[in-house]
Design a protein around this nucleic acid. Sequence first.
DNA 1: ATACTGACTGTTATCATATAACAATTCTGC
DNA 2: GCAGAATTGTTATATGATAACAGTCAGTAT
Lengths: 164, 164
Amino acid sequence: MNKITSLVAAPCQHDHAQCVSDALAAAEQVCERAGVRLTTLRRRVLELVWQSHRPMGAYDLLDILAREDDRRPAPPTVYRALDFLQEQGLVHRIASLNAFIGCASPEHVHQGHFLICRNCRVAFELDQSLIQPAISKVAEQLGFTVESETVEIAGLCTRCREAA
Amino acid sequence: MNKITSLVAAPCQHDHAQCVSDALAAAEQVCERAGVRLTTLRRRVLELVWQSHRPMGAYDLLDILAREDDRRPAPPTVYRALDFLQEQGLVHRIASLNAFIGCASPEHVHQGHFLICRNCRVAFELDQSLIQPAISKVAEQLGFTVESETVEIAGLCTRCREAA
DNA sequence: ATACTGACTGTTATCATATAACAATTCTGC
DNA sequence: GCAGAATTGTTATATGATAACAGTCAGTAT
């Protein structure tokens, strides 16, 4: 896996084709293991989501599909694929942007925590170990049972701050 | 201020009229100090947002306004009031619910971090000291400049878990 | 092979959330 | 009172998401 560890500087520097093929390979594995079908459509949507490290809106995906085919698919087509991919932990939804992004490590189920640059729009998935403990601690103290976590930190990445 | 410290059990137990009047009084103060106008409409929208500790959708607010008056206001009316209230730090937007909730401590500007019960739908604003340090630390390590934070933890509050 | 079954995808219509653009009104300082 | 700025009203539309039902396809049992 072409892991991006120093995420912030990465988008312009890495072999992105490798990211995509790794993500698709991992997806095959995950679906195989779960006994679910990664159909052509679902695979294609996942591939489109992975075209960049920027969250993509469902209608962006529809636009791309419309350009590739001659017929424009209807929204439910892509939303259902996205629902499936989310259920399998292959993509995360970014609530603050109404958008979707490929999961960096779908091998184990987890919540996505993100740093999102408002300039280059790249979203960096944080390792669970960074924010999760604070959340668990708070929840335990207050007797709250956590079911899902939305952690989306917006700002400027190193590169964009230095450029400005 | 009728502070709810053990937030999770609070919604059924506190003097909510006090919450509302405290919130409105605080809002007057905040606007006074900022030199901006808390108009009748803005005050009314804030009051509606504070009708409960549940995040309210903009269209919910429009419905209530329509019931109170005889004329239904158009969406921009309430969205503009909400924008103003957000700018002044009097309400927070909950991205994962497309909804708005009154800020528990508008005296100083801050990001809202929430625990949100999926059953009773009450949202509890966390003290900044709980999650913020973890976020700041991560951001600093990665050279990321934080501008806004979306932290929305969904699950079950104590009361609802015990009831189930 | 054939028919059955459930999963998947297509299609139409509609709902839900949010904003752009411009007009009318109201407030404030002069 | 008046001019300019801020606020609110109004119309239209953009954007994101889902309900409901019809058609198609893959895998299985016969």
